Simulated scan of single mutants.
Amino acid sequence: MGEKYSNARGHFFVAIRALAASSDSIQARLIEANESILHVTIDEFDGDRELKFKFAKILDLLAVDQDDMETVAVETAAHMTDFEAVKVADLICDFCFELV
């Protein structure tokens, strides 16, 4: 693995672990994954438009409001249906795979 995206890769790996290694509801696992994902900034993907766009989509689904993203992400995930939460979790997993 190269150094490119190493910070993002580390945070997304922790997020994947949170999604996979719990018997909590998918919403609770997504809230835990958010804690890691929100440490990644969109600027980390400068130079790769496709990754930047995909990361922006994940952020948009997690926290539309930019003022207090962490609080909004928790509230958003807590009120997602199982279907919506699984869709976001799938996007997170796919994105993490692209970082490797």
Rank of each mutant, 00 (worst) to 15 (best):
K4T: 06
R9N: 08
R9K: 14
R9I: 01
G10F: 06
V14W: 05
I16A: 09
A18I: 00
A18P: 00
A18N: 11
L19N: 03
L19I: 11
A20D: 12
S22H: 03
S23T: 12
Q27S: 09
I31M: 02
I31E: 02
E32Y: 03
N34K: 03
L38E: 03
T41P: 00
I42Q: 11
I42E: 15
I42F: 02
D43P: 00
D43E: 14
F45P: 06
D46V: 09
D46W: 01
R49K: 12
R49M: 10
K52M: 14
F53I: 02
A63Q: 05
V64F: 08
V64N: 07
V64Y: 07
D65E: 13
D65I: 14
D68E: 15
M69I: 15
E70D: 10
E70K: 12
E70I: 12
T71N: 01
E75K: 04
E75S: 10
E75P: 02
A78D: 10
M80T: 01
T81Q: 10
D82G: 11
V88A: 08
V88C: 06
V88S: 01
A89M: 07
D90E: 08
I92Q: 03
F95Q: 09
C96T: 06
F97N: 13
E98N: 13
E98Y: 05
